[in-house]
Design a protein around this nucleic acid. Sequence first.
DNA 1: GACTGGCACTCGCTACAGTCGAGTGCCAGA
DNA 2: TCTGGCACTCGACTGTAGCGAGTGCCAGTC
Lengths: 339, 339
Amino acid sequence: MGLDDRKLDVLRAIVEDYVATQEPVGSKALVERHQLGVSPATVRNDMAVLEEEGYIRQPHTSAGRVPTDRGYRLFVDRLSRVKPLTPAERRAIERFLVGAVDLDDVVHRTVRLLAQLTRQVAVVQYPSLARSSVRHLELVPISTTRLMLVMIADTGRVEQRLVELPAPIPADDVTDLRRMVNEKLGGTKLADTPPLVQALVEEVNPELRPAMTTLSTVLLETLVERHEERIALAGTANLARGGLLDFQGSLRPILEALEEEVVLLKLIGEVEPSTTRVRIGDENEIDNLRGTSVVSTGYGPGRIVGGLGVLGPTRMDYPGTIATVRAVARYVGELLAQN
Amino acid sequence: MGLDDRKLDVLRAIVEDYVATQEPVGSKALVERHQLGVSPATVRNDMAVLEEEGYIRQPHTSAGRVPTDRGYRLFVDRLSRVKPLTPAERRAIERFLVGAVDLDDVVHRTVRLLAQLTRQVAVVQYPSLARSSVRHLELVPISTTRLMLVMIADTGRVEQRLVELPAPIPADDVTDLRRMVNEKLGGTKLADTPPLVQALVEEVNPELRPAMTTLSTVLLETLVERHEERIALAGTANLARGGLLDFQGSLRPILEALEEEVVLLKLIGEVEPSTTRVRIGDENEIDNLRGTSVVSTGYGPGRIVGGLGVLGPTRMDYPGTIATVRAVARYVGELLAQN
DNA sequence: GACTGGCACTCGCTACAGTCGAGTGCCAGA
DNA sequence: TCTGGCACTCGACTGTAGCGAGTGCCAGTC
């Protein structure tokens, strides 16, 4: 298709203007604000072509042009380069994240930071258990028939489960159980534990077997199989900015979607190494979110342990958002590496 | 003031109709839908009085009447009786809450249940640490200079903190520390621990003193002083129901307020024993929430350990909401008592 | 052949006038 | 004290007209 350089320039100008003003942009305004070196009439011709190709459209006959999802896609892929962060933003990130004591704290701060910097909805996944290794397993007797199983992962996550034993168990046996479990499972990736747990149950001496069996059930069922994912969300108030002009009218479907953990996981959980994923409008798989764009990426210390990202109107500042999301992910990764 | 029974009946009818239809209610419609036994003209006179007293108002001259905050207040205090739950609702509550394994799970299910039943925003506070007792303190060595302090409270809450020791510490000493801490603090209310912790530091033998000191700092600072409160939220999508007719226009201030933990705590955290608190419109202390009403109550096993409630438009079904909030709180209390 | 200026046309937006009707306040009478 | 009747108010809706931003097309120029 004949998309020469000038037509691409026009598209870029349209996207930039529309993102900035949120109003359909016309040929005249375009040549005034950008140095295109041609007249409005020429731009109009280019626009006609761009419209024919599906990159822009007219809300109504006598209005200016607005980018389509396809237009944004082209813009993101070929017309924009990632905006470097301002020093102020860098400082904000550092200031925000130092002093975090806890994994909870880190995630909490990160999600708020992201929401604040991008002025959009931010989502941060806790380090996934599926990508974690066991650092330590602790068994705390609550009563003679109840144990609290505390798992501490190398990613900093701590999970606890109540284990209801079939029969009372003496304190010494708990010590034995703890030792055995840690010897066998310590350091292994959670995903690799099932056969080891199985072996444990078989190896354990008979009087500990019932306890070990329930313990292993809890371990496998609640920590490994449905490896519980946790997610933090912030900045929903940003959806109600822009006077409801974005999201044609109702926030409801969006808020609804954001309350579903499964949905959020789909948004930011599926992370491939070191790419930033941008899903624009209809590219989104979740119906309720087809009016929105999602920028997401993975983070972690060296390797990826979870995802984070933001969600906003398709009309968003992609270069800036992508830069921010990446930068925050990198900082968080470094932070986690220090522990 | 001359608010005889019929005038009160009229007010009740107005509130009920307005809540149901969300439209200003006129004198004619009123006599048609309720058996008031008088003519529209009479009702109009009563309305004039009610308006003069500030219980209702006219959005514009030629419109029907709408209750004011004061009108709702009178309605709640004197004109309505708590609606008994339908069997279906009872069943829903039970079905929703059985099978919860975890405190996290209980809170999570509760908040969703509340949001679903009331069709409003639901808020549930985790059992407050300030109202909890220490059941067990566990010290897990992460490295030679790092301990994970895990506190298990009688309310089911589990909190962990990383303790960075000033010097490496052998495993035996950790055992000693654990034993001492548990002997001294086990079973005591968190609020009562500071002098005990102080005593611990003084009593401990010299070589353990540095470790005990940092440990006590973490304990006091992060668990006792700023006793971290956790809160769960659900149903924000319900704010966007009613086509933005409630909340005159923008959801933004409300969503903003709901992102502040401090605000949420203020909403539902200040619980007096066994009362259900209803704050209507302007009675609310938080500016951003002056368009809304909040129904909240305490819950717990026998004694109150935390608060829960819902937030919605002033135009809400108070009798129904109050009944639901109370019922859910009672069920949750029972559930906690079983553990 | 690519660009430009000019021109007619489209169509959403705003303002304005007119009508309708729900709802009110008031008053005289039962 | 209540009621029916009546004049009045005022928002909602409708239709019309003018404005203006923006377009598409075309003939002319480099």
